[in-house]
Design a protein around this nucleic acid. Structure first.
Lengths: 259, 259
DNA sequence: CGGTACATTGAAGGGGCTCAATCCACGTGG
DNA sequence: CCACGTGGATTGAGCCCCTTCAATGTACCG
């Protein structure tokens, strides 16, 4: 665990939230303070171990992690992919034991936020709390889209939709430009996330390449035609970037309103 | 909208939470109070309309509702199924417009809980708030299992797992006995929830019947062999019924701890 | 320079889909 | 009280998307 350090002037979470919510300088400082105590987790190590008990959430500061479910015979389903700025460990901390493991895909830096701190934040800074809540909402929406991907979209639509989602999420944290982003997943992992076999992921990517929609070079994805790909994947990014501050909080009077 | 009424001594949500969390009599009263103002939504009408704005959550008091996503060509994916005692409208209320519609499958009674009330609840009754939070956590876990169902389980495993989940959820609200529960879904809806075609749902149910695992008669599901079905579907109910009160709240000192 | 991890491609097979017909239960109106 | 309509359940035939299995290619790294 590293000591608090003034060198963290800026984190992905902060970058993301300030775009979506009007935060006061005080709130930004507070948000940064929450993320000042960090922990490094090496590539391929577990951040959360299935069956263990946790008293904290984590904010992803750097790197990529996945939460997944393994079935008895080895089949794996990736449940979600956490990028910098995402919260992880949310469901785990309300159960007496974590239901699913979370594993670092790359070297990862996380900032634990204990329950105690979180609860106080909710009481004293409802405005900020609402912003954090929005993160959970957006995550729920991502689940919904993934469910739709896997359940009702063809392999081509599915990959198209997923890549656009990643593009948008990377853009929100300032790690992608207009149409390209770093590809954190191997084709095998992509398959486990989208419920496709590795060979079929490969064929699907080839098809997208041949159609001039997407190219992947040196772990970098280039979306050649965002329009066409969005049409193909039925992608509409509002679930990732549209936030509304609920009225009682917008006014900043959350604590003053009586029950 | 019906006026508050003393006749609601007991609701599914209360029944569920008192099993999982130690609530004081005051907290139970408060929880009941939240659900005293109810609204009736007729079968096949929308509870939440896609694209509209909401300032409240709803607690399901009675009936069944579904949230779903429709693709351009008519393919439908049911995102979740809300039973009495569930919260609905959670992600919607943090977006400026609801992302997905929620529709009443039967006549439904809901209790709106406005944001203002909710925020006050969080500030003043963290213990109760944590219980509500657990509901969200459990919902997230249900998503995870659904994702695994659709992504990595065969039709047989998938239906097995889903039926056991429904059994357990109905049991938690006192609407199911040891091994049977009311079937709220037609085979078509089952298909849209589990991403199977209607004919294949039918064939799968037949198989389960022929194997002596499940029978469905008059809209009532009978699980003939819970053991065997659980093994088949790799079902483990802890994600529905295991709650842990986070330490700072368990002590009831949430508000006293300083940041 | 061998080794390992990842990507690529082909061939064959299967689980589940589509299309289509039939059946059944139930409510409604004549 | 029965005829009919309608929503849902059931079953079959053929097909296709995607899987499995298998082989090969390729880049990077100690």
């Amino acid at each position: 665990m590293n000591p608090p350090s003034a060198s963290w002037i800026d984190t992905p979470l902060t970058r993301k939230l300030v775009q979506l919510v009007d935060l006061s300088p005080d709130e930004v400082t507070l948000l940064q303070g929450l993320q000042s105590m960090t922990r490094l987790v090496r590539r391929n190590r577990e951040i959360v171990t299935q069956g263990r008990r946790y008293d904290a959430l984590f904010v992803m500061i750097e790197g990529i992690s996945i939460r997944y479910r393994i079935l008895r015979d080895g089949r794996r389903q990736i449940l979600n992919i956490a990028l910098p700025g995402d919260f992880i460990g949310f469901p785990a901390c309300f159960f007496d034991r974590a239901l699913y493991p979370i594993s670092a895909l790359t070297d990862v830096v996380v900032a634990p936020i204990s329950f105690t701190v979180l609860i106080n934040l909710f009481e004293r800074h409802p405005h900020l709390a609402a912003a954090i809540f929005w993160s959970f909402s957006s995550e729920a929406a991502i689940y919904s889209e993934r469910l739709t991907d896997i359940g009702r979209r063809t392999a081509l639509e599915r990959v198209a939709h997923f890549l656009l989602e990643l593009l948008t999420r990377f853009q929100l944290i300032g790690l992608a430009d207009e149409c390209s982003f770093p590809m954190p997943l191997t084709q095998e992992l992509l398959g486990d996330a989208l419920s496709l076999s590795l060979p079929h992921v490969n064929r699907t990517l080839r098809q997208l390449r041949e159609d001039g929609l997407v190219s992947i070079e040196a772990h970098q994805v280039f979306i050649k035609d965002v329009e066409a790909l969005s049409a193909l994947g039925d992608f509409e990014k509002s679930y990732l970037s549209r936030f509304r501050m609920p009225d009682p909080l917008a006014a900043g009077i959350g604590r003053a309103v009586s029950l």
